[in-house]
Amino acid sequence: MSPRFYPVFRREIKAYVQSPAIYVLGGLYFALAGLFFHDILVYFAQLSMNPNMRSMTGMNELNLTQFVVRNTFGLLSFLMLFVAPILTMRLIAEEKKSGTFELLVTCPIRDWDLLLGKFLACLSMVGAFLVVCLVYPIVLEILGQPETPVIASCYLGLFLISASYIAFGLFASSVTENQMVSAIICFAGLLTFYLVGDLASVETGLVGSVFDAVSIRQHSMNFTKGVIELQDVAYFVLFSLFFLFLSAKVLQSRHWRV
């Protein structure tokens, strides 16, 4: 017996696959990610082959994993900041605008199943993006000796970050009928959560600690270094759950909002 969210999940996957927008977005994402990866790799190779350049940059140890993998995955998670709003903006806003939302909520499924189906479908699309990105570790494996556990840590981090971005995007999509407004709310909100870490580095005391605790960037750094901290995993899981919960509350508000 398939889970109750499955029909929504299947419907969303179908909608994504049949939409040309996802391929345009994918093409752009891989072009940019590929360009970043290529540039980082070529720079690393130049450093490897040119001792003068190496001494000028003060790099005593040239570690492929810490240089190429870390920077590439840092940029991939930054790019996801732009991808998530586009992927999620239509999830609920479009349904509201076209009027299919009313039909959807009259189906015998709970709000949570509806949200879970949409969330997992979107996450699957991001998962597909990440699978294509496996070409970068494969290239590294052919050229050198990257540390596989660190790459696994980067992937786990990128997946958790994407999940929290999508949960936030879903919430942004649920508060408005306009897709553009949803994308803007999502991007602005995520950017705030991303950049609040910069304030944490200048603010000391309790305020600094709070900024530190809510910053997406602070929590994502350890994954790219190859360190899995339970607090980082907890942050992204709780972040996702909280915004899924908020989305559910927004959906439920249709019963009493005038």
């Binding site: 040309p20 093409g27 590929g34 290529h38 294509v132 970068y136």
Partner: peptide, 16 residues
Amino acid sequence: VLLVVLIPSLVFFGGL
């Protein structure tokens, strides 16, 4: 060519 042209083009044109 592989990373910046081929793979993105495959996704872009293949999908469209």
